[in-house]
Design a binder for these strands. Sequence first.
DNA 1: GGCCCATGTTCAT
DNA 2: TGAACCTGGGCCT
Length: 269
Amino acid sequence: MPEGHTIHRLAADHRDRFGGRPVRASSPQGKFADGAALVDGQVLDGAEAHGKHLFLDFGATGWIHVHLGLFGKYAHGPGTAPPAGDTVRLRMTGPGGWADLRGPTACELITDAEKSAIHDRLGPDPLRADDDGERAWARISRSRTTVAALLMDQKIVAGVGNVYRAEVLFRHGVDPYRTGRELRRAEWDAVWDDLVALMREGVRANRIDTVRPEHTPEAMGRPPRVDDHGGEVYVYRRAGQPCLVCGTEVRTADLGNRNLFWCPRCQSR
DNA sequence: GGCCCATGTTCAT
DNA sequence: TGAACCTGGGCCT
């Protein structure tokens, strides 16, 4: 489920649900038992996200660093937690409710220095207020790598995943196989600004919607489509379906072991 | 029950 | 470039 918007949303959810008060922490599955024990009873001072990394601030005790990876999921709610089962890596509870973490790639207690090292290897994040696209452009504009690959590289831009990659390139008519150095400055600026807007909306709605009102199936006089991943999108996982804008079949290809989706007509050189 | 797939990353070769 | 890791849903038998 996770691209950057999910993680920023989780940070806000943690602040709202647990912030400023002691939490109970445990690891029903056992793999984070030591870390959970250290944090148990401590006050959650804050939560922040950088790209797809979540950091829970426990002051002098350190930070819990969570990365959901491809399979990780959070479930949370008010009141009493449901039965944990044997896959909950981390359970936090407090007066505001509960949160269960399953299947993460990373769930570890880290120091300030270790946290800094993570920030240092991440590029600017469209969802972090102080970040901008300059550092990303400096690398993109020199690169012979495809724009599609560059957008997924967390050292270049933090937080973009397979859905936002496909969708933002579609929205700007950029052929995913163009190289970074073939991208014009104005195109990158527009892509970055759009990522900021799309991902902010993603945090708000807690899903990825990218289709402009004038391109919805209804507005285009086409039959309605159903997305199986919760948002309304142009090309992501729509291989073989007609492009919402031009009707050409959406294409897919393997790029670096991930599925790429694009419209060969709307996104031509 | 088994198999495939998925909005991800790291490490070994 | 490929394998490994982590979980769950959908679809097949």
